[in-house]
Write a protein that binds this DNA or RNA. Structure first.
Lengths: 161, 161
DNA sequence: CGAACCGATGCTTGTGGCAAGCAAGTATCG
DNA sequence: CGATACTTGCTTGCCACAAGCATCGGTTCG
């Protein structure tokens, strides 16, 4: 009896999620990223954010963080580096490792992208009440949390900040 | 003053959305799709659902529906067809066009996938209250609606069912 | 004690595969 | 003949896997 209602809710959420994923792909395709260092691919900017926000990273740490293969990260970081958005320093404690950190230019680009991203959400959520925004953020956070736990090998707890 | 709170909320939502997109990619990668006609890729199943649910389609209609290039749809449908999940009939009213419809096998596979998908959500939302589920579904729907309106060329209103 | 060795670790590079779009072709319609 | 419905060839973006190189840390031997 209540199972039916519950099922319908799950179905509804599942449907919206599916829809959202399709939409968001197109959203990203549409979004113009600040392309100060031209020729960068989209995932590079994801890495840039991580680096800009959470300080210097080892490549391996970065890979775990975003759940991508190390090889992919390696290439993207190389691209970021040659675009001048990021800089490598050999880890003093282990010369096999490099620490990747943002450059000033990288910080600027990141800031610009962040501003764009925020502006977009501002536009999308224009009609929402504060309560709606809060609840949605909270529930979404909860969902992500569960998702991260279910998925194997997701370490990223630190989404604060 | 309230602007600050609002900004923080937008930022929070934006962050969760970003996180969710990354997570969901891995989620899909993890999900085992029913592989009755094996060798099928994920996007093919997206099309299969559409076809199974909303009856026969022309390729062009399908392409508009899911906002993909006709060429992509053409290939995916070909894959579905050779897996026996889908069948083509030349449109009697226009012999350039084909009407794509599910086969019995396709219907089975679709049902199985749908069940899996539902089960997954059941698991993910296990701890949620009915209110939370309802609100989340409603807000998510609203977001998608806005998103669809902002994105150019999104016709798909009919996400009901 | 120091040099030589060895497995583990951090990263890079080569290769390959899928999915998507664009553009050019073919068949049919009107 | 021009427009439409699709197909097909090619390119690009993004990813993983696997092999390889350099370095590290610990052990063993002289």
């Amino acid at each position: 009896m209540d199972d039916d209602a519950e099922l319908a809710e799950h179905a509804a959420i599942g449907r919206q999620v599916g829809r959202f994923i399709r939409l968001s792909e197109r959203l990203f395709a549409t979004l113009k990223w600040s392309d100060a260092g031209r020729g960068l691919e989209r995932p590079a900017y994801v890495l840039l954010s991580r680096i800009a926000v959470d300080g210097p990273f080892r490549l391996s740490a970065l890979a775990t963080e975003v759940a991508l293969d190390l090889s992919t990260v390696s290439r993207q970081v190389a691209a970021l580096e040659s675009a001048g958005l990021v800089r490598r320093a050999t880890d003093p404690t282990d010369r096999r490792a490099s620490l990747v950190e943002v450059t000033d230019l990288g910080r600027d680009v990141f800031a610009e992208n962040k501003a764009r991203w925020l502006a977009m959400w501002q536009e999308l959520l224009a009609g929402w009440t504060p309560e709606e925004r809060q609840i949605f953020a909270a529930l979404f956070t909860q969902l992500n949390q569960t998702l991260a736990e279910k998925l194997p090998g997701t370490s990223s707890e630190r989404d604060a900040r």
